[in-house]
């Protein structure tokens, strides 16, 4: 017997969670498209973002949400500075550029995780969010927890701004042209270093601030990153490599799957279920659930 009230509550929680995952997945997918790098560091950006919330907010005696502007600026700057290094190791005379990119970002991920572990120790920390407690009752539906709702609103807003930039501005057009063919983009006068830096910086900024919200929803712990790297892979494979609209669907599927698995099976089984889904999708439709990925034939 399925409890309808519980069921709708799980759907609400899953959708709200999906909103923030989408922002991570879209950035990750864009980094893959523009820089041709599978960014292993994505989950560690989430982790570092969460820790910035946990450490900086008490320092100012403020809420986690108020450090978002700082996180955005710091992550954008760091991302824009890291991009030339990624570009350097994935281009030129090097054999296996994709592997070089993996090794580089895997090293970056290990470095970030190790640094946070060394400085702050292994314990998880809370990101202050006392203003965002409780929930909003919606009769007939269920409760919208305030933290998750604000998180989802941020996710959807961040995504909208990002998509607007990508599809409605000159710079976004340049980034999409680069994603399709770097050399031809250069021949049209596009400074690829500049726009690749903007793209990677924007992705890092979105991912880091998503980390603050995830930290508020759960908590910040040095080991949390790997899970979000796995989530990013899940979304991009499910969406079809390089197909941005698919990432939105995949992020929502991810949120719902996590939510349902945690309630009906176990919180520990989430990754198991996700990868079971991935294997089935890869076997049945390698170009993603919508069949429109780069590998679509």
């Amino acid at each position: 017997m399925v409890d309808i009230g519980l069921f709708t509550q799980i759907v609400i929680n899953g959708l709200l969670l999906g909103g923030i995952y989408v922002t991570i997945g879209v950035g990750f997918s864009l980094a893959f498209g523009v820089l041709e790098v599978v960014d292993f560091a994505v989950g560690e950006y989430v982790m570092v973002g969460a820790f910035m919330g946990a450490v900086l907010a008490p320092l100012f005696g403020a809420e986690g949400v108020f450090v978002i502007p700082i996180v955005l600026v710091v992550f954008f700057a760091v991302g824009a500075l890291i991009q030339p290094l990624i570009h350097h190791v994935t281009t030129g005379d090097r054999p296996h550029p994709l592997l070089m990119g993996l090794v580089f970002t895997f090293g970056l991920a290990t470095f970030l995780r190790g640094s946070v572990l060394t400085i702050f120790g292994p314990n998880s920390q809370d990101v202050p969010s006392s203003l965002l407690t409780g929930g909003i009752e919606v009769p007939g539906l269920g409760t919208f927890p305030v933290v998750r709702t604000v998180t989802a609103v941020f996710g959807v807003t961040g995504l909208a701004v990002f998509m607007y930039y990508l599809y409605r501005t000159r710079g976004g057009m340049a980034i999409r042209a680069i994603a399709e063919d770097r050399t031809n983009a250069r021949l049209m006068g596009i400074n690829i270093n500049r726009y690749q830096s903007i793209a990677y910086g924007a992705y890092a900024a979105l991912t880091g601030s998503a980390g603050v919200f995830i930290g508020m929803t759960f908590n910040a712990s040095p080991g949390m990153g790997l899970q979000y790297t796995a989530f990013a892979f899940f979304m991009v494979v499910l969406a079809g490599m390089g197909y941005l609209p698919g990432v939105i669907v995949a992020g929502i599927v991810l949120g719902l799957t996590q939510s349902f698995t945690a309630v009906y099976i176990s919180g520990n089984a989430v990754l198991l279920v996700l990868f079971a889904i991935i294997y089935v999708v890869l076997l049945v439709s390698p170009a993603g659930i919508l069949g429109k990925g780069e590998w679509a034939t």
Partner: peptide
């Protein structure tokens, strides 16, 4: 957009 990319500079 292809034409606009041509006029990027």
């Amino acid at each position: 957009e292809n034409l606009n990319v041509g006029a990027f500079t």
